[in-house]
Design a protein around this nucleic acid. Structure first.
Lengths: 256, 256
DNA sequence: ACTATGGTTCCATTTTTCGGAACAGCCATG
DNA sequence: CATGGCTGTTCCGAAAAATGGAACCATAGT
């Protein structure tokens, strides 16, 4: 295995739950000799990928990773417009909204607008979730042909809750509904008490797409309100598609 | 030069203004043969560091960088507490607040709370600024001995505005004032019309420290209000120092 | 002092990398 | 439809780096 790909593997060992790793931990996780890992982690630190945790033997991702992560695709024209669009809906209804993208069989939150209500849903930015079990994920999966979806899920599904699709058949049915309706819904699915509405935007051909999403506490939203939010998201998505030229710089979208 | 450090250099070529790079651009920026860069960028893509931009020859940082950047030190006990403290001050006064850290002679914004006023200052998260020319930077530099500050600035200072320190002498004087007062001020310095108040927290010994900061439109804040904000920040910093055990999980700090 | 644990260094062998040059793909232009 | 300019890729032997087992250090706990 080449150094670079091993370094990639090392970085993948970090997560929200594993923010700090030692030589031995990495060696065990990747089944590599300690001598190797020892040198590799040091080299990665010299190169800026990692930094040593003060008063500890551990390593953690370096500031370089933070800087890079911060510009990730936020300035892509599509994501910037999606961010602005979600912001309008989030503001109008007071619930948290975010933009997410798909990476293989997962979805990841890219940007968010925090809701203004006392009771609101937290921020899932940077968190990786199985796409099939999230509204955003199904909105994005629905743009792929069935065989591609199947290819992305070689093993049996591991539904995190009873309201998530329990198998490929159910997933395919729900994707069909998303294609018909133009939006995806997840009620009480990954998170109890939480509902999400998701609408995909962008070029479905895989070149670049993203997903608008509003998440809300089920206790605060009745069916009528939910339908209004769906309509608002669909309208924003239509606006993005019908006027693809209208650029929004990330700066103006992020500023007040 | 080893592959890993070259890869680090490549990543450093990206910035908010350069979100996408081609083989030729990297080759010129780093003075490397194109053959090398061609293979390296491909290897970096295979390893997850980069991704190809659709419908373009360019590369951009990969989603792996985004995921790593998102957990960067946000869950460090100190940063989490600082974030919560800044949040209180930001909410009470309505101005934008953020937490930043020092990296060599630069400062970088880590987390922020957006202000609630119509007129407010934007979000500098992930942006790298020369420490000597920012309130946050001077608050953190002031914790170092003079010779260390000098070591960090081998060349002559390049002040970005007339209100920034114009030379090492003036910088040292202003750092002395920061040490005396316990806070740093920057008025109309890096950004016209903007004032900032910064207070450092954490273990000055370099092991881990961070900086609380409030930024505000000068038009909205008179001297009395500014003094109240200074007092509020100093009180929060004192609280953090006098009760070092009180932990705040990042989750509860980030959640609603 | 002794041991357990985690981390580093050493060294010969194996595997990559290096960089110049030749080559291939893609447009625009003549 | 050639031509030239530009960008990116492949090829090759020489040079350098990574590998992994074992021996070696450092630290904390008994």
């Amino acid at each position: 295995m080449t150094t670079l790909s091993t370094a990639g593997q090392v970085l993948r060992c970090f997560s929200a739950r594993r923010q700090e790793l030692t030589v031995t931990e990495v060696a065990e996780l990747l089944s590599l000799p300690k001598s190797n890992v020892s040198r590799l982690l040091r080299a990665m630190r010299e190169a800026g990928f990692l930094e040593s945790v003060p008063d500890s033997r551990g390593y953690r991702p370096g500031i370089l990773m933070f800087e890079l992560g911060n510009t990730y695709r936020r300035d892509s024209a599509l994501v910037a417009r999606a961010h602005a669009a979600v912001g309008r809906v989030s503001r109008d209804f007071g619930h948290t909204g975010y933009v997410s993208i798909r990476d293989g069989a997962d979805v990841i939150g890219l940007t968010f607008h925090e809701g203004s209500r006392m009771l609101r849903v937290g921020t899932p930015v940077g968190q990786r979730l199985p796409a099939f079990a999230a509204a955003t994920g199904r909105a994005l999966l629905a743009r792929l042909p069935d065989e591609e979806v199947a290819r992305l899920h070689p093993g049996p599904l591991a539904p995190p809750s009873p309201n998530a699709p329990q198998g490929m058949d159910e997933l395919m049915q729900r994707l069909e509904a998303v294609r018909r309706d133009g939006y995806a819904l997840a009620i009480d699915e990954s998170n109890p008490g939480v509902g999400s509405i998701a609408v995909a935007v962008g070029n479905a051909a895989g070149s670049e797409d993203a997903c608008l999403c509003i998440v809300y506490p089920l206790a605060l939203v009745d069916d009528a309100e939910r339908d209004r939010m769906i309509a608002a998201l669909l309208a924003e998505a239509r606006e993005i598609h019908t006027r693809p030229g209208a650029t929004v710089t990330a700066r103006s979208a992020a500023a007040a």
